[in-house]
């Protein structure tokens, strides 16, 4: 009995101590930013926050509830009462959802002219692109694949049978991007035929990029759908160029990330300053090395190792409204025609 009382007491103490820590002294103004998880773990905030914080005498809090879509859902659920001021990392395929939900307020950044106009998809300036364009790409192990597929048509050749790792569009962002990519290339009617031809090439469809990458790096299969900058990443990690990437000649699937000020913020001025900051060189130059994306602002210096990142000759895209309108249907078709025929 004594032991039990003791345990209860100790737990309360521990708990009390960690709840108690939330009492803070007079805090400077705090900016709460929702973002996806790897935005935090890749380190852009760590590299840039201090500059902003000391310039505006404030504090920045980054919070994540999973990947971009998961965190965005949180924002949608909290609509109107969110504690967050800014959302960083909306994808093209979520633009429609976000704008329909009226979650963001308009702000035209001072440096908006430095962004190529074709990337400013929201004319109302509620969501501003801050990095990209990038593309997903075919990452391959050059020790096992000497002659990588140069086009989507190459990819279905028998020599690549059972060699490609994919992500599931039902559960993964890159998986969804790849599906959209094939639709951009072959159209809303033609993509099914392509996937049927692609079937023999597929080694396995993993539920997420991370499990796919785990399998890829353990040599389960020599090709996977991943990102254009991956070779640069591998080069910085161990100076090896074994892993290469290629974007089929049909063109890359344009990928941009957006940030915006959340409707209902109590720190609108500071939030505007942060959006401006995101487009400044201080922020943009950190994007390649941390975020493994291309900076959106023209003429931002790139690190040397970015020569290993691949860039397509052209980018393919679709109006975001069209994506939003058709995606559920496309996915259904994909499930019906492809998943049931797999293996």
């Amino acid at each position: 009995m004594k032991k039990i009382v003791l345990v209860v007491l100790v737990t309360f103490l521990v708990f009390g101590s960690f709840v108690g820590c939330q009492k803070k002294e007079a805090m400077p103004e705090t900016l709460m930013i929702y973002t996806y998880d790897s935005f935090i773990s890749y380190g852009v905030p760590e590299a840039t926050n201090q500059i902003f914080e000391s310039k505006y005498n404030c504090k920045i809090n980054f919070i994540s509830f999973g990947d971009s879509k998961e965190t965005l859902n949180r924002l949608i659920l909290e609509k109107g009462s969110s504690q967050a001021d800014i959302f960083v990392g909306v994808n093209i395929d979520d633009l429609s959802k976000v704008l329909d939900n009226d979650l963001f307020i308009s702000y035209k950044p001072k440096l908006i002219d430095k962004i190529p106009s074709e990337y400013i998809l929201d004319e109302g300036y509620r969501l501003i692109p801050f990095d990209g364009p990038d593309s997903i790409a075919i990452l391959y192990d050059s020790e096992k694949i000497q002659n990588p597929p140069k086009s989507f048509e190459d990819l279905v050749k028998p020599e690549y049978a059972k060699k490609l790792i994919l992500e599931d569009p039902r559960t993964s962002g890159p998986g969804m991007s790849f599906l959209l990519w094939t639709i951009a290339v072959y159209g809303g009617n033609g993509f099914v035929d392509y996937w049927e031809k692609l079937n023999p090439t597929i080694f396995h469809i993993y539920p997420g990029w991370d499990s796919a990458f785990t399998a890829f790096s353990n040599g389960e299969a020599p090709m996977m759908i991943s990102y254009d900058t991956d070779p640069a990443y591998f080069y910085t990690e161990d100076k090896s160029t074994r892993y290469k990437a290629i974007i089929p000649k049909e063109g890359g699937w344009m990928y941009l990330e957006f940030a915006g000020i959340i409707k209902g913020t109590e720190h609108e001025k500071l939030a505007q300053n942060y959006i401006d900051f995101m487009l400044s060189e201080d922020f943009q130059k950190e994007i390649p090395g941390h975020q493994w994306m291309f900076p959106v602002v023209k003429d931002t210096p790139l690190p040397d190792y970015f020569v290993y990142a691949v860039k397509p000759d052209k980018y393919l895209t679709m109006p975001y409204q069209e994506i939003a309108k058709n995606y559920e249907n496309w996915l259904k078709i994909w499930i019906e025609k492809i998943v049931s025929q797999l293996f």
Binding site: D67, I76, P207, L331
Partner: peptide
């Protein structure tokens, strides 16, 4: 669900996969 998809494959989807897809891919609560 995630372990089923990793270890089994895309054809082995459980109800949870659909729930995840509706919540997260479509935000269809």
């Amino acid at each position: 669900f995630s372990i089923i998809l990793i270890i089994g494959g895309a054809r082995f989807a459980t109800i949870e996969v659909s729930i995840y897809t509706y919540y997260n891919m479509f935000s269809d609560f």
